[in-house]
């Protein structure tokens, strides 16, 4: 758990130090990728709680999910389909599901 917090802090510091932000045109792609990343992380925590954690699946899922999500939203944008909202909804639902699972697990344990 400490590693995770340290990683978060280092990443955050890096983000503050980097001088550029996201151009307005790509902000929707980036936010979807961010949602996918958060979904993967919560999914990983859930897997760790239930004892099925596999770091290969976790890492590949993390990067593939975020890149694929951004790519799909980009394609949808080109085709005039608002996949942006669909992705946000799907990832949001999954994140809250996972959160619920983690909460129940922690409550049962203690």
């Amino acid at each position: 758990m400490i590693y995770a917090v340290v990683g978060l802090l280092i990443g955050g510091a890096l983000g503050f130090l980097v001088p550029f932000g996201i151009p307005a045109g790509y902000s929707s792609l980036f936010s979807v990728a961010l949602m996918a990343c958060m979904d993967s992380v919560f999914g990983g925590i859930k897997a760790a709680c239930s004892g099925t954690f596999d770091d290969k699946i976790f890492i590949s899922g993390f990067f593939t999910n975020s890149l694929m999500a951004a790519f799909l939203v980009y394609v949808g944008d080109r085709l005039g389909i608002d996949l942006y909202y669909v992705a946000l909804l799907a990832f949001g639902l999954r994140i809250f599901n996972n959160l619920g699972f983690i909460r129940q697990h922690l409550l049962k344990k203690h």
Binding site: Y3, G7, G11, G12, I22, C37, F58, I59
Partner: peptide
């Protein structure tokens, strides 16, 4: 998976802060 989690959390933190800044 300590190291992998640390890496992933680093990327996540980076993205979070960039998004916040934008």
């Amino acid at each position: 998976g300590r190291l992998s989690i640390a890496c992933v959390c680093m990327v996540l933190g980076f993205m979070l802060v960039i998004q916040f800044k934008s």
